[in-house]
């Protein structure tokens, strides 16, 4: 379970996050939506414990990442936006490195787990090749495997289908559904309305550093008095507002 309680953070004069509260439940896929610069990444970073909130608290299960960062991160698997791999290591070595850093012993059980992840993500062909020759999709899938190899109960995926082709996107969606079906809490961001519509159990829309709407997809559409999710999003955020804010705010 991931929870934000009145998170707020400013960088100098710029208010990145004014007040964000939401909850992402175990066994569900929660979508985090918002125009660029709305405060999504900063909110997520406060949940990771990389950025300290000026006000409010974040929760990873029963842990506050601001006070217990290591324990919180052990229960958290993150695919940040534009994740980098180590090009000279193989996919397997990249994944194993992060597993060991998360306190998993380097033994046969770990290798078996990596093999299972490779099977799920359709990486078996390339897993033992140096990452330098990977396609964008292979890089992304190895980064996901790396994020979840330590079996975290909470998973945050920042635009996981960004740059993927159709087949990879489908494989990724299956994998996300499987993770939630295992009882994990999955929080993910995307700009593709169709993807959010087909994947998410719940939705949190952020704009101008605040939560504008949240609930199930029908609830959000109803709340906005719109016909489709995209119309609802535009009605809630407002196109001019989104652009204006994006121009004024840093990350």
């Amino acid at each position: 379970m991931l929870r934000a309680e009145g998170l707020a953070r400013r960088f100098g004069q710029v208010v990145a996050v004014e007040s964000v509260s939401f909850e992402a439940q175990d066994g569900q896929i929660t979508g985090l939506l918002g125009p660029n610069g709305a405060g999504k990444t900063t909110s997520l970073r406060m949940i990771y414990g990389l950025v300290r909130p000026d006000a409010g608290r974040a929760w990873v299960d029963h842990l506050d990442p601001a006070t217990a960062p290591l324990e919180a991160r052990r229960r958290l698997g993150v695919l940040p936006d534009s994740p980098g791999l180590y090009a000279r290591l193989t996919g397997r070595e990249n994944i194993r490195y992060f597993a060991e850093l998360n306190g998993i012993a380097n033994d046969a059980a770990l290798d078996a787990r990596i093999d299972a992840l490779a099977r799920t993500l359709d990486l078996e062909r390339v897993i033992d090749r140096p990452a330098t020759g990977y396609s964008q999709g292979e890089r992304m899938k190895v980064a996901i495997a790396r994020a979840i190899v330590h079996d975290p109960p909470n998973i945050v995926l920042d635009e996981p289908t960004n740059g993927l082709d159709v087949m990879s996107t489908r494989a990724m969606r299956e994998a996300i559904r499987a993770l939630a079906a295992e009882g994990r809490c999955v929080l993910f961001t995307s700009h593709q309305m169709a993807e959010i519509g087909s994947l998410c159990d719940r939705l949190v829309i952020i704009g101008q550093g605040r939560v504008i709407a949240q609930g199930t997809i029908p609830e959000v559409i109803h709340q906005a008095g719109a016909a489709t999710l995209e119309d609802a999003f535009v009605a809630l955020v407002g196109p001019a507002d989104g652009l204006g804010h994006a121009a004024g705010a840093s990350p």
Partner: peptide, 8 residues
Amino acid sequence: EPLLLTAA
């Protein structure tokens, strides 16, 4: 950033 997001 991924490195800093591990439990190390």
